[in-house]
């Protein structure tokens, strides 16, 4: 009896949700009739809880529609197991191309190889895959090393002649963040090389998970261990905002300057309010756009740049005050 009821509940739920799916499908069918759809592009995003990847997904969907393609977006939820399952699902449903933000640059290898064997081109955006023996048709991402250099410059600017102790909130799992930190360290080293006072010392590198709550916890510990801290470099906006909250609670918000990364909406808003000093900003919309354009070029047999890195730009408070997309309240 119990199993009976469980089953009924499962079926009922499935129906309800199946309804949602059905809605999405009608849209696709309309597309097929309207623009004579050339096929489907499967996109497995790193995590859709981060607005950055949502923007990539949305821009891709929009741009692909203009070229007669439909985009199916799956959320890998930072889990490479889920991501490779999604690749298998794409292959089973016969997509024309696959786009990934590789969750694990090595462990995604076997899944990419299966796509290669099935003759389906794989494109990466934002993060690159480095597994052996896999063929990536094209990559569009941020020039993270250059972004790291800019973050270092912003930190030097923020601390001024006084210099001081700096902490890094890292997310080592992502290679993009490793490059950012490499660039940041390089810029700081160069600055220190010709001075004896006013030096900037990187005193710690903590794991901030690239998330608001983990960044908050790491910073709360960091400020205890390093009470004289003058600056923080967080490898993305969520962890920068988490750090800000921790510093406010510790009463050190005025003492410690924060440099973030990304330039997503919440981050830019915080820059406007002076809570974050500056961000090297990335362009997820351009990533989505160029990825789709690369796919179209590939399918049209045209040549295109196999690896395209978009440079970042430094975004400070003055930029935020002119930014029309921000809420211009008091």
């Amino acid at each position: 009896m119990k199993r009976a009821l469980t089953g009924v509940a499962a079926v009922a739920l499935f129906f309800v949700l199946g309804g949602c799916g059905g809605g999405a499908e009608t849209g696709a069918v309309e597309g097929r009739d309207g623009v004579a759809a050339r096929g489907t592009i499967g996109f497995s995003a790193m995590t859709l809880t981060n607005p950055f990847f949502k923007i990539i997904a949305d821009t891709m969907t929009e741009e692909a529609e203009r070229h007669g393609f439909e985009v199916v977006v799956s959320d890998a939820d930072r889990d490479v197991n889920l991501q490779s399952q999604q690749v298998d699902n794409f292959l089973a449903s016969g997509v024309a191309a696959i786009v990934l933000n590789p969750v694990d640059r090595i462990a995604i290898g076997p899944a990419v190889r299966r796509a290669n064997e099935a003759g389906v081109p794989v494109f990466t955006s934002d993060l690159q895959a480095v597994a052996e023996g896999v063929e990536i048709a094209g990559h569009v991402g941020t020039d993270n090393y250059q972004g790291g250099l800019l973050a270092g410059e912003a930190m030097i600017e923020a601390l001024g002649e006084a210099g001081g102790e700096v902490l890094i909130l890292h997310f080592k799992q992502a290679n993009s963040c490793v490059l950012r930190v490499d660039g940041f360290r390089r810029a700081i080293e160069e600055y220190n090389s010709d001075r004896s006072d006013g030096r900037i010392e990187i005193v710690a590198e903590l794991e901030g998970g690239g998330l608001r709550d983990e960044g908050y916890r790491a910073m709360a510990d960091g400020i205890q261990a390093h009470p004289d801290l003058a600056g923080v470099f967080a490898i993305n906006d969520p962890s920068a905002l988490g750090a800000r909250t921790a510093l406010e609670q510790a009463g050190r918000a005025d003492q410690v300057r924060i440099v973030g990364f990304d330039g997503e909406l919440a981050g830019r808003q915080a820059i406007r309010e002076g809570k974050i000093y500056a961000d090297p900003i990335q362009y997820p919309d351009q990533m989505g756009l160029m990825t789709v354009q690369n796919i179209v070029s590939y399918l049209d047999g045209e040549d295109f740049e196999r690896v395209h890195l978009i440079p970042t730009r430094l975004y400070r408070q003055a930029d935020a005050e002119r930014d029309p997309t921000l809420d211009q309240g008091p």
């Binding site: 119990k2 009821l5 469980t6 509940a9 499962a10 739920l13 499935f14 949700l17 199946g18 949602c20 799916g21 059905g22 999405a24 499908e25 696709a28 859709l48 199916v72 977006v73 799956s74 959320d75 939820d77 999604q86 699902n89 089973a92 449903s93």
Partner: peptide, 26 residues
């Protein structure tokens, strides 16, 4: 089924949560 029917991952979480609750409640 939810994946290839194109149901977003947010809704999938809701299904699983509800499914477990229903099973335990029963």
């Amino acid at each position: 089924g939810l994946n290839i029917a194109g149901v977003a991952s947010y809704e999938q979480k809701v299904v699983f949560g509800a499914l477990i609750l229903a099973a335990v409640l029963l």
